[in-house]
């Protein structure tokens, strides 16, 4: 169990990279990048986890305790997700432009330079 969360994180990063490598479609490559990035979310949350730890949110009615999971890595995961979303948007916009100028979204066919 100790290794499991970290293994999932590493596997997601590698499988996402594999998806980018094998992709024949830039949209698929973009989605694969999101998969690879989600590995970093799993890693961050695994680093901050504590057995039986509560959420680091003391909603009205609850008493603050120090037995909570690490809030700092959760905040970093949030940052990560926002960056991932913006990168995805930019890559998809680039894909649209590439389709317009080269009439293909297959990265293997994008080898010639065009002035």
């Amino acid at each position: 169990m100790r290794i499991f969360a970290y293994a999932v994180a590493g596997w997601l990063v590698l499988v996402g990279a594999m998806g980018i490598l094998r992709s024949r479609n830039l949209i698929q490559a973009t989605v694969s990048l999101s998969v690879a990035q989600s590995g970093t979310y799993v890693l961050l949350l695994a680093v901050g986890y504590q057995w039986e730890g509560a959420a680091p949110v003391f909603s009205p009615g609850s008493t603050p305790t120090s037995d909570v999971v690490d809030p700092v890595v959760q905040a970093m995961a949030l940052t990560d997700i926002v960056v991932s979303a913006t990168v995805t948007a930019l890559l998809l916009a680039l894909t649209i432009q590439i389709e317009k100028t080269h009439h293909t979204v297959d990265p293997d066919k994008l080898q010639q330079l065009k002035g």
Binding site: M1, Y6, A46, G48, Y49, S66, D67, V69, D70
Partner: peptide, 18 residues
Amino acid sequence: GMPPFGTSEHLYRDLAVP
């Protein structure tokens, strides 16, 4: 080489919560 998964040892947590 990392601290074991799920322990109660979280240095940043101990600073951030207070």
